[in-house]
Design a protein around this nucleic acid. Structure first.
Lengths: 206, 206
DNA sequence: CTTCTTCCATAGCGTTCGATATGGAACGCA
DNA sequence: TGCGTTCCATATCGAACGCTATGGAAGAAG
């Protein structure tokens, strides 16, 4: 995640300032990757959507890979925020349900592409993009770990039976989340995903 | 699914016969698409894996899209077979559990790529491959419909409570199936997926 | 062996890919 | 106004893309 980084806004003092809104351009890049995936989005696709020429894109964002990672970071938001949301929920069950309903809602936005950027953008790819896939997989693993730890905490606190399988339930939440992204891409409406999220936790222990 | 089809084996009477095993070559193509996806697999990738030159590939399989669709058909097997398996199960619950455990097992094969070819090969893509994504989405919808109908049948037969939501439970099975493919690609072992499949149906009504 | 069909191998078609070299215009600063 | 810096626009770069034209070799049929 932090290899040869490209300084995004070194805040130049002199010279001609940027003629485009870097943040707005990044937003458009994110939407384009969200719609078409990482490798299957071309530089021309990006420059068209961003309203920027190729040289400007490269000076502002480094290269395609760094642009994608920055867009992905913008999409996912602060990882620590989500981690704290999981920890701050009253129970692990509440955290899981909040995650699923939030995903169901986010994947079926009317002004955004369907599904999850992280789930679909790098679901497959050539060997050249293995590192991008790895970054996204690490992100998923960190969420899974947080959720598992939250379930562990509830077990120790006596909120969940001792024979509860934390890895299985955390994994189920992750799997349903990723699966809903596929269904959303297939055209499933928001109500369907919310119904799935509801029954997914029907067997939650306790 | 049945647009300008390419006759695969017109069974020529005369002329020089094929010097390679068409079936074995298709198998390798399937594995390559499975590993790297549809658009992110190049013709060179395919010819290398199949041990066949480009002109031979084109005369034998039409073009890249037709080769992929044929490989996908080979991967998924006979759709009617899976449909009959769902119908023939003792209960919808049995059918769902069988689907999930079969998926968990298939996605973590030791001699095959991880995950599901259909789930990862066209999870995203440019507008040019929208039809390929559509074919796969149709396949998913047909399974979902069969499973939903199976649940309906169990409700009518009194095996499930009348207030059971067939779409939600069928959707859950589909979502968990697709989600397990992502987790398998991330490296989740078979035991983890089987545990997820187990808890997924914990809240099954009845 | 001749003929006819089909396949294989080489080479290359035109296009698009990600990424840049170059030159002039725009701006901050003095 | 003049200087130094930075950005934008044009025009590509070499490589890889999907795909195919062409010519000779291989095999089946007579």
């Amino acid at each position: 995640m932090d290899q040869p980084e490209h300084r995004p806004p070194p805040s130049r003092k002199t010279g001609r300032p940027l003629s485009f809104d870097r943040d707005a351009a990044l937003e458009q890049a994110m939407l384009t990757f969200w719609r078409h995936g990482y490798e299957t989005t071309s530089i021309v696709d990006l420059t068209t959507a961003m309203g920027v020429t190729a040289p400007s894109l490269y000076t502002a964002f480094g290269d395609k890979k760094r642009l994608f990672l920055e867009a992905a970071r913008r999409y996912a938001g602060d990882p620590e925020a989500m981690a704290q949301a999981i920890d701050a929920a009253p129970t692990a069950h509440d955290a899981a349900r909040a995650m699923l309903t939030a995903a169901a809602t986010a994947y079926t936005g009317e002004t955004t592409p369907k599904g999850c950027l992280l789930a679909s953008a790098a679901a497959s790819g050539s060997a050249a993009s293995a590192d991008v896939q790895g970054v996204i997989a690490d992100f998923r693993r960190s969420i899974d770990g947080r959720l598992r730890a939250r379930i562990d905490r509830d077990i120790e606190a006596g909120l969940l039976p001792p024979d509860t399988n934390p890895a299985a339930w955390a994994g189920l939440v992750m799997a349903v989340t990723q699966g809903m992204s596929v269904l959303a891409r297939d055209g499933a409406p928001r109500a369907s995903l919310l119904a799935i999220a509801d029954v997914a936790l029907q067997g939650w222990p306790g």
